[in-house]
Computed example of a mutant assay.
Amino acid sequence: MELVPSTIPGVGVLHHCRTRRGQRLSVLVEHSGTRSLLVDPRPGPDRRPGPGGHGPPGAAAPPGPSRSPSPYGADDGDDVPSVRLILEPDEADQIADLLHTRPIPDRLAVLEDRITRLTEELRS
Rank of each mutant, 00 (worst) to 15 (best):
S68I: 09
S70H: 07
A74Y: 05
T7E: 04
E121G: 10
P62A: 05
V11G: 04
D106Q: 14
P56C: 15
S6T: 06
S36C: 14
L25P: 02
G55H: 03
R67T: 09
A109D: 04
A61P: 03
S124Y: 06
S68R: 13
P69M: 10
T19Y: 05
E120A: 10
R123S: 02
H16R: 02
H54S: 06
V83N: 05
I8V: 12
R24E: 01
L3T: 11
L111P: 05
L87I: 11
S82D: 14
A60M: 12
G77W: 00
A60D: 10
R67S: 09
R102I: 00
V4T: 08
L3F: 09
I86R: 10
D90P: 05
P81G: 02
R35I: 03
D76S: 08
G58L: 13
P89L: 12
P105T: 11
R117P: 00
D106W: 15
G33A: 04
L3C: 11
A74N: 04
P63L: 14
R123Y: 02
R102N: 07
T119Y: 03
E30R: 11
H15N: 07
V80L: 13
T19Q: 07
R20D: 14
A96Q: 15
S26H: 05
G55L: 01
G77C: 02
R35S: 04
R84W: 08
D40R: 08
R84I: 09
L111V: 10
G50Q: 05
A74F: 08
R20I: 10
G58F: 09
A96D: 11
L85T: 08
G50H: 01
G53S: 09
L118V: 07
D113L: 11
R84K: 07
T119D: 01
R123W: 01
L111Y: 12
S36N: 12
D113Q: 11
L37F: 12
H54G: 06
G73N: 05
G22K: 00
G50L: 04
G52M: 00
T101Q: 14
M1I: 14
S36M: 13
C17A: 05
R42L: 13
R18K: 12
V4E: 00
E30C: 08
E121D: 14
A61F: 05
V4G: 02
D78I: 07
E91Y: 01
P89Q: 11
G52E: 01
P63E: 13
V27Q: 02
P89T: 15
S82C: 10
A74H: 10
D78F: 05
L108S: 15
G12F: 03
P71Y: 03
P9T: 09
P45V: 04
P56F: 13
R114E: 00
